[in-house]
Every structure is written in structure tokens, then in C-alpha cells.
Write a protein that binds this DNA or RNA. Sequence first.
DNA 1: GTTGACCTTCACGTTGCGTAAAGGTGTAAA
DNA 2: TTTACACCTTTACGCAACGTGAAGGTCAAC
Lengths: 254, 254
Amino acid sequence: MEYTVQKLARLAGVSTRTLRYYDEIEILKPARINSSGYRIYGQEEVDRLQQILFYRELGVSLDSIKNIVTSPSFEGAIALKEHREKLLEKRQQLDLLIANVEKTIALTEGRIHMSDKEKFEGFKKKMVEDNEKKYGKEIRDKYGNDIVDKSNAKFMNMTQKENEEVTNLANEVQVTLAKAFATGDPASELAQKATDLHKQWLCYYWSEYSKEAHAGLAQMYVDDERFTAHYDKEQPGTAEFLRDAILIYTGMKQ
Amino acid sequence: MEYTVQKLARLAGVSTRTLRYYDEIEILKPARINSSGYRIYGQEEVDRLQQILFYRELGVSLDSIKNIVTSPSFEGAIALKEHREKLLEKRQQLDLLIANVEKTIALTEGRIHMSDKEKFEGFKKKMVEDNEKKYGKEIRDKYGNDIVDKSNAKFMNMTQKENEEVTNLANEVQVTLAKAFATGDPASELAQKATDLHKQWLCYYWSEYSKEAHAGLAQMYVDDERFTAHYDKEQPGTAEFLRDAILIYTGMKQ
DNA sequence: GTTGACCTTCACGTTGCGTAAAGGTGTAAA
DNA sequence: TTTACACCTTTACGCAACGTGAAGGTCAAC
């Protein structure tokens, strides 16, 4: 049985372009060229194409396939094992990516609600969520679901006026914190004042304030690069400074 | 603070080419061009680049990033969710690929040992392995580990003479099977003779023959495309025909 | 004035084809 | 016999996200 490009292409389920390309890169040459310059493939080429497509499905590059199908089988095995390693690495990276994307979606989701409500800064809602995750159960156990839901509802339904107030307060925190940072001492009076303002600001979002939650948030400022970036925008190190100040403020650090 | 390409590139850990490319595709234009035609970036561009790199790390395409960083945040959220879907799909595919690659490695590994032993056809060892997997425990329970290990060892250490014998037998199977296939009846005398030859051939590899294992192998000939391809090479349908013949031979089908 | 480190704009290479464009071939119907 | 139509050929640009020169201008220091 002999095949022209299109016939072989249909048989194998690939495009004619693909076959010409495989000819070009010398991975699958036709058995012969007829008098009109047509490519003619035979049984051997069919088998070889099947092999090629098999490895292609495994995600092996054509260059590697070339080695596999032209070399003794043990070279093919080595190539395949290398390929497996690559795939496993790829999967690890992918898992990491997915985790990060999901984290970011949570964050962005918050940002949307906020832009509906006249653009708070983007990371606030995540704070509530994280707080809920970390201390939610404890607080719910202590005070019941009602009060906690009301607190979250409060956040979602802030009035315009409250929004202005909270924005001003946030600015005050920033300014005071910047000044305090210049002192270099998170235990300084200024730093503790900044921390107190931060607590007030927080209380706009949290119906229940707890030192533990406050301290937990502080640690998150340092752990999560997106929060860190926000606080370190003007002065690198500010996020860490704020954390230390909060730890002192909450008595978590002497 | 103002930056030239290289300064910004160093700050952000990317190449200058990347920055020029981002300029070209209008995803990050410099704040201004100085009198010598140099690109000058400002704080705003630094922030934007940070954002771009953040999404890039998530594996988002530059085209999508363009939408994300230039559109209101909710569009970014949609893009991110789509991206997450893509990633999840990718992971599924990847898992499938890995499984297949591993299957093939097992197969190829067999082929290596064989080419060391004067080239058996590649799929035989996999048979032993699969048989071991499916019936190994049963056989080991029945006859003890010793005899089974010896059986496998036998396969790995076939003599040259045995190899010739088995190759001839394999040819006989093929020829007889082809003739039998022409009759169209897997219960025909010829088909049953082919099956008997197949059993003899098998016994070169299996120290213990069982009807169940034989029938299991027959099903695998149909289920695994690589085996199917081997038997269907000359006449499509042969693998299935052989399976039916074996099922009848082993009494698994009346 | 001359290094040397910087900057600029082309422009080709990478992977695996898709998609024309421009033209020759083979066969069956009008 | 012409004509239509399906097939074949080569050539070549396009895709993503840059890497890697090449050829040439700029800037500060020695």
C-alpha cells in the first residue's frame, strides 16, 4: 500500500503540513518521490509515523523523538526517563502555580467587592478572611455565629462615611508609622502610637478585637509578600517594623 | 528615583531585552525618553513591572497580563479564574502523560534487556510484568516465591538456542493465526491450533501456565493499543480474533 | 582622546506547525 | 477538448517571549 501526503495524513490524523514538516526536519522522509515530485510513503513510513505520534502524545519534543526512533532502544529509554523527570518537575511547579493563583483569586475577589464599595485598598478583605480562618472558630465558639456574621456583614456594607473615616485613619497609620520607622525602635512611643492607630483602623473591620488576632495579622504582613510590598513601598523594612511594634503592643514580645 | 533599562532590569531581576520587549508590546512603556533616546523609568513603572512579574510568575501570558493590569480589577479576576481552569486542566493532562510515560518506560526497559539478549520483540517482558501484577500474588501464594522468581529469572536469561526456538514458534503462531483469521471463526480447528502454539510460546516465558493468566493476557492484547498494533499489523481485527480464540481455548467462553 | 560601560535599533533563531500564495498535476464530467 | 476541481509542490510569514549577536551612538573617567 502506498500513500500520498493527504492519504497518509488522513490515515494518521495529522495535517499534510505536519508530514511535510517531518520531511523537512528529517524525522520522517517519504519512501520515494514520484515523477511529478509527489511524496510517496510506504508501510515502513506508516509504522514509523505511528511511533513518532505515540511519543509525541507523551509530550516528547520532535528533536528527542528523532533520537528515540533512530537510536537503539536503550537510548530511547534514557530519553524517556529524562522526559519523565521533566514532567514530574513540571507537575510540581504546576501545583505551586495553582496554589498561588488560588491565593490571588481570593485576594482579587476581595478587591472586587471593594471596588464596588468605592475602592478600599485591595488587601483588606483577605485580612478578614484570614482572620476568620485562623481565629474564626475560636471566636465563633466564644460568641456564637451571630455576632461573627454580623461583623463580616459590617465589613461588606460599610457606608460611604465610614469608608472616608477609615481611609483617613489608614493614612494616619501610614504617616505615623513612617515617622516611627525613622526612630528605628518598634518600642518607641511613636511606634506604639502608630500601632494603636492600626488597631483602631482594624476595629472598623473586626467586630471583635483580640491581641492574638492582631499579632497574627502582624506576622502575616511579613509572611505574605503582597502585604509586605504594600507596607515596604516607601521604606523597605516597614512591614517587619510594624510587626515588631504590634508584637510589643499586644504583649507577645517584651 | 529614575532608572535606565539596565538599572531597572537589575532591580527587577529581568533582562534588558525583556524591558525593551515589554516596551515594544506596549505592556510597560518608560516614563519618558531622554535626549539621547534612552528609556527612563520612574516609580510608577517599577510598581507596574512588579505587578507584571507577579502575574508572569503565575504563568499568565503577557497578553492576559496586559488585560489584567490595564483593566478594572474584576476583569483581572475573570482572567485569573480562567487561568486557574487552564492550569487544572493542564495538570490533569500532565498526570495522564506521566502515567503513560511510565507505562512506556516499563515497556522499553524490557526491550533493552531483550536487545542485550539478541532482540526479542519488545513487548514480551511487559507481558511477564503485567502477568506478575495480575496473577503474581495468586501464583506466589500457591507455589511460593521461589518458583515464581525462577520463572522470571528464566525469562531474563534465555539462551541463544532457546531464543531461536521461541522466535520460530512466534512465527508459527503468526502464520497459523493469519490463516485462521481467514476462516473468520475463532472456534475453528486452525484457530485453536494457533492458540495452542501461542500457549507453547507463552510457556517459554511462564514457568506456570494457567488458563486464567492466558485469558487475562488475551484481553490485554485488545486493551493495550501497543499490543493490538502488533497483532493487527497485517490484518486489523487479528488481536480481537486471537482473544476470542484464547477465551474459547481456555474455556472462558463457550 | 581613548577606553569601557552603557544605550539604541534592527533582525535572526527558537518550537511545531497553521495558513495563505502561486503555481503544477491528474482525472472526470460537459 | 476544454474545463472544473481536487490534489500536489515550494516559499514564506506568523505565533510567544524573549536570547543573542551586530552595528553604531552616548557618557563618564582616566
